[in-house]
């Protein structure tokens, strides 16, 4: 079985983003970028399925500017077998990403697509669900446990109230949550080897997908800042402040 893993290049999670002065977006110039952390978990899961003999090939896909190829190389260094880069603007909306992925699924015929539950830049949490609806495949979102036996898929999902167990059949779409696994680091030799792994480009035209934006970003602004607080010297002072100043207890 082949597994498709879409990996998105995003601002590194440690970076505190800054809104551009002209309020058109956030500052991306000279900012450290990295693979979306959820996608690292998705790649790791695919590798584990391959190590377990369930999967035979892992294809990492990224949609975005040329630098997205670095993100694909990271996936290859972790253990993916080959990459596909679809050149597009960095803010391709989830619906367009889902359509692109659908077209790639039709070309590549994977048995499983594993995505992150959300990208930490736009926090949309849409792409996997959209893809499964477009494909008519089962969807297992927010996975913290994945088990595959034959074409049976059992997933544990993280939901607001706790956990949920569901079963479906492959082919399917999975979106992963934080606790599914701990992604491995790529070793130096594997980073070197990854440079030789195949990475193809496929254009939007090849795929026949219209990726034009549906939403207009009117403005991007800073959230209101919180007023500076005070340091209290003791628990007694804290309780007094909460009772008599803030009046919240």
């Amino acid at each position: 079985m082949k597994i498709l893993v879409p990996v998105k290049r995003v601002i590194d999670y440690n970076v505190k983003v800054r809104v551009k002065a002209d309020q058109t977006g956030v500052e991306l110039a000279n900012v450290k970028m990295a693979m979306n952390p959820f996608d690292e978990i998705a790649v790791e899961q695919a590798i584990r399925l391959k190590e377990a003999g369930t999967a035979t090939e892992i294809v990492a896909v990224s949609i975005g500017p040329d630098q997205s190829q670095e993100t694909i190389r990271t996936a290859l260094a972790m253990g993916a077998d080959r990459g596909i880069h679809v050149p597009a603007s960095h803010d391709t909306e989830p619906l367009a990403v889902a359509k692109i992925l659908k077209a790639l699924v039709e070309k590549e015929a994977p048995g499983l697509v594993i995505l992150g539950k959300q990208a930490i830049d736009d926090d949309s949490n849409q792409t996997g669900q959209m893809l499964s609806a477009l494909l008519g495949w089962p969807q297992a979102t927010f996975a913290s446990g994945v088990e595959i036996a034959g074409d049976a898929l059992n997933v544990i999902r993280e939901v607001d109230g706790g956990l949920e167990h569901i079963s479906s059949k492959l082919p399917a779409v999975i979106t992963v949550d934080l606790r599914l696994n701990e992604p491995r680091y790529a070793s130096l030799p594997n980073i070197m080897k990854a440079k030789k792994k195949p990475l193809d480009q496929v254009s939007l035209d090849d795929l026949g997908v219209d990726a034009s934006q549906r939403l207009t970003v009117v403005k991007v602004e800073e959230p209101p800042a919180r007023e500076a607080g005070i340091t209290v010297a003791s628990v007694s002072e804290l309780v007094d402040k909460l009772k008599n100043e803030a009046k919240v207890i």
Partner: peptide, 9 residues
């Protein structure tokens, strides 16, 4: 967006 560090209209 960006963990609430920016608000997009």
């Amino acid at each position: 967006i960006y963990a609430g560090n920016a608000l997009a209209t």
